[in-house]
Design a protein around this nucleic acid. Structure first.
Length: 759
RNA sequence: GGAUGAUUAGCUCAGUUGGUUAGAGCGUUGCAUUGACAUUGCAAAGGUCAGUGGUUCGAAUCCACUAUCGUCCACCA
């Protein structure tokens, strides 16, 4: 054996060996109880980062249970990550001087598919580099056709169960990416903007968005505000930049008399609160900003200006006309921005598909109450419940191409009720109502061939493919599902489509391990959707819930920050690549360092000190092995042994003590792993192997070693190697091979918990 | 505004049913050894466990309040 452990000589070789021999498959323990973890699917187009490296926790669990004889399945997969991937791809297009508007849906989808396929292998190989014992023969992708079919079927089932509806309401819309987002995806940023005090006839009101005044359909005051009683219910005459107008004054509790002047303009088509007030008072929705982010015809001479430009122009003109009383330049507030491109999101009214969440949440909460699902650390259960409690219906429509198309067709009755965008046969972008497009002589085929987007009026009849009638014309829904709608069914769809019998055997899964940062976005959705799809109904008995939860335990790890404790981000330029670190320190050291010294669910700063310590520890383990090998070579009579604890015995009092100590160690490691206290397990192993076994036992036995004590020494060491294996798979395997262990340590039997017997 | 986490050695952090002198890594100091390992060994210094009050025979650990920092969520034009 070399004097120092060199990870570069062994990692690739061993991983290949494991994979080739089929050790990653649950079939390696054909008679074992099932133990399942579904890998949180990384973005198919992304690179491995430290968040993925934390999946080492899953590998520890899987390797531990595999060695315990369970049929351990760790199922890998990748996510198409709709918005993210399309965003990246569109940036590429942009660098080539193109945009998504140059292609039909089908062309664009095909291009992204090819792009993703080219890059998809990257992340998989990176996961291999860290030694993750994933069953690659069962790998899935969210856009595999069998998965797409199930996701669509779920939607249909929900529809039949009355859990799905289409509605026309405000959405968070990014005019740059051209899609809406769920509330959860909206990022809020602190901004300092001017607050304009605008004269509305006899009233003055404060607004940050004077350009939306063209969409005002009322002015509101608080019903108890004595100042404005006489105006309530009246139509007042106001002067605007587009001439005189009248506007209704309404009273609503929503208005805070303390803020501004106590008067608020109501723009139901462009403000979430105003939309709600508008529903209560039956206000007209007047959309003055288009999905392109520009003012439309309602803005009169300001038509065609972007929102920002329009605001400036409108304010200037209002000032000229004396319509602005004053401006508070330093008004601090928060605005919603796109989490990808940071564009200010525009609340816009749009027809979208929604899922009723209340009936679904009910079962999720029941499952939590009954502890069919347990969350570690437990405090996160509160977070999850709170989120459920305040949840509004889920908008699952995304105006992306890259995703699973919502499987719905709209019956075309009134052609004026369809707004469409398509590329004509000359590859020119055309848009307008269907009526207008057809009048201009474009054929039905031409439209469908180059189709980009269809917006059907809320009154349109929607049907599924097989419900289409021969004598009718239909336009497809062009929106795709929110990515979380498909990934929310991940444990179910993967096991349903991997191998025959997998679902029956491996569902519910044992553990869902992921970062706490996606507890709400993902874990919460998996729980509600998993319960729904697996039990086939949306109201069930507890016994059924227990069998249909997607996972029994949720284990949440924290974030890995940069060495200074700051969040890693590309824009800050402080991202550390885990694979580079693995090159330098070895995969085992990276794995160990990530687990050591951080409580579950806590964030950690990436620490070179810990990496050093872990690497040195690996070397220590290596040198214990080297010592054993040397003794064996020096003494031809010595034989290397791997005797189990219960069989070990010695007449030497000190030896006996060590048998007991190692026995206790096994118990402790079991206890820590069973309770997801990976840091304690790692710390205990580090402490014991190094400062007990090496520093004390070996120092003691060194000078009195004989054939008998060598048996004990090597056996006790093998036990520790096995305990270490889930944490440091490569070096433990390499040592075990070098010392002549029979077979692979990876599939060897986990040390039995048997306190040593004294002879 | 709501929720949540943190505050322990110079630095980064462990410490899950409350129990003897509070631990680790890195750093610091002294000594030893080229004999499995200098990616070493032995030893040492360094902490009123944020503060105050409470529960208890006993509190870093439980409770209340306060302070500071962080994270998430909501959001008033």
């Amino acid at each position: 054996m070399d004097k120092a452990y060199n990870h570069k000589d062994v990692e690739e070789k061993l991983y290949q060996m494991w994979e080739e021999k089929g050790f990653f498959k649950p079939e390696i323990n054909p008679n074992g109880e099932p133990y399942t973890i579904i890998l949180p699917p990384p973005n198919a187009n992304g690179d491995l980062h430290f968040g993925h490296a934390m999946f080492v926790i899953e590998d520890i669990l899987i390797r531990y249970h595999r060695m315990k004889g369970l049929a351990a399945l760790w199922l890998p997969g990748t996510d198409h990550a709709g918005t993210e991937t399309q965003f990246v791809f569109e940036k590429r297009l942009q660098s080539e001087g193109k945009s998504r508007f140059d292609f039909s849906r089908e062309e664009l989808y095909k291009m992204i598919w090819e792009y993703v396929s080219e890059n998809r292998g990257g992340i998989e190989n990176q996961l291999r580099r860290l030694g993750f014992s994933l069953d690659w023969s069962r790998e899935k992708f969210t856009l595999d056709s069998d998965i797409v079919a199930i996701v669509k079927e779920t939607f249909r089932k929900m529809n039949d169960d009355g859990l799905v509806y289409r509605d026309y309401r405000l959405v968070n819309y990014c005019t740059r990416d051209g899609t809406s987002f769920s509330d959860l995806e909206v990022l809020h940023e602190e901004r300092v903007d001017p607050l304009y005090y605008v004269k509305y006839g006899p009233l003055v009101l404060a607004t940050t968005r004077p350009e939306t005044k063209f969409g005002d359909t009322a002015v509101a005051v608080n019903p108890n505000d004595t100042r404005y009683q006489k105006y309530i219910g009246q139509d007042i005459e106001i002067k605007t930049v587009l001439g005189k107008a009248t506007i209704k004054v309404i009273a609503d509790d929503y208005v805070d008399p303390e803020f501004g002047t106590g008067v608020v303009k109501m723009t139901p088509a462009h403000d979430f609160n105003d939309f709600e007030v508008g529903k209560r008072h039956n206000l007209e929705m007047k959309q003055v900003i288009g999905f392109d982010g520009k003012m439309n015809h309602y803005a009169g001479k300001f038509e065609g200006l972007y929102v920002k430009q329009a605001r400036k122009a409108v304010v200037e003109e209002m000032q000229e006309k004396g319509l602005i009383e004053k401006i508070d330049e330093k008004y601090a507030h928060r605005v919603g921005v796109c989490y990808k491109c940071k564009t200010v999101l525009e609340p816009l009214p749009l027809e979208q598909w929604y899922i009723k969440v209340t009936p679904l949440i009910e079962n999720a909460e029941k499952a939590l109450d009954a502890e069919f699902v347990n969350i570690y650390p437990q405090s996160f259960e509160h977070t999850l419940r709170q989120w459920y409690a305040g949840l509004r219906d889920w908008n699952i429509s995304r105006q992306n191409v890259w995703g699973i198309q919502i499987p719905v067709w709209y019956e075309v009755e009134d052609e004026s009720k369809f707004a469409i965008t398509f590329l004509d046969k000359e590859k020119q972008l055309q848009q307008g109502t269907l009526q207008y497009i057809l009048q201009r002589g474009h054929s039905w085929e031409e439209i469908l061939n180059g189709l980009q987007k269809v917006i059907a009026d809320i009154s349109a009849t929607a049907v599924f493919e097989d419900q289409k009638k021969e004598n009718k014309r239909y336009l497809p829904e062009t929106d795709t599902f929110d990515t979380w709608f498909s990934s929310g069914q991940w444990p179910y769809v993967t096991l349903k489509t991997s191998k025959v019998g997998d679902f029956e055997k491996f569902y519910p899964t044992s553990v869902m391990e992921t970062g706490y940062d996606i507890l709400r976005a993902w874990v919460s959705r998996m729980l509600i959707l998993g319960l729904y799809v697996a039990n086939g109904k949306h109201v069930t008995e507890p016994t059924v819930l227990k069998q249909t939860v997607p996972f029994k335990d949720v284990v949440l790890h924290g974030l890995v920050n940069d060495p200074l404790g700051k969040k890693m981000s590309k824009s800050k330029g402080n991202v550390v690549n885990p694979l580079q670190v693995a090159d330098e320190y070895g995969a085992d050291a990276v794995r160990f360092a990530l687990v050591y010294g951080t409580g579950l669910g806590n964030d950690q700063a990436m620490s070179y000190g810990k990496l050093d310590a872990a690497k040195k520890f690996a070397n220590k383990v290596w040198n214990i092995a080297r010592f054993i090998e040397m003794k064996k070579q020096e003494n031809p009579g010595f034989t290397f042994a791997s005797i189990s604890l219960s069989e070990l015995a010695s007449e030497n009092a000190s030896d006996q003590e060590w048998i007991v100590k190692v026995g206790k160690l096994v118990e402790e490691i079991n206890k820590h792993l069973d309770s997801y206290q990976f840091n304690l397990a790692a710390e205990r192993l580090y402490e014991f192997v190094w400062h007990e076994f090496a520093d004390k036992y070996i120092e003691d036995v060194k000078n009195r070693i004989d054939a008998q004590s060598f048996l004990l020494l090597s056996s006790l060491f093998m036990i520790q190697l096995k305990l270490l294996h889930p944490f440091m798979p490569f070096i433990t395997e390499e040592i075990s091979q070098k010392l002549g262990g029979d077979g692979s340590i990876m599939i060897s039997e986990w040390p039995q918990i048997v306190s040593s017997k004294k002879k």
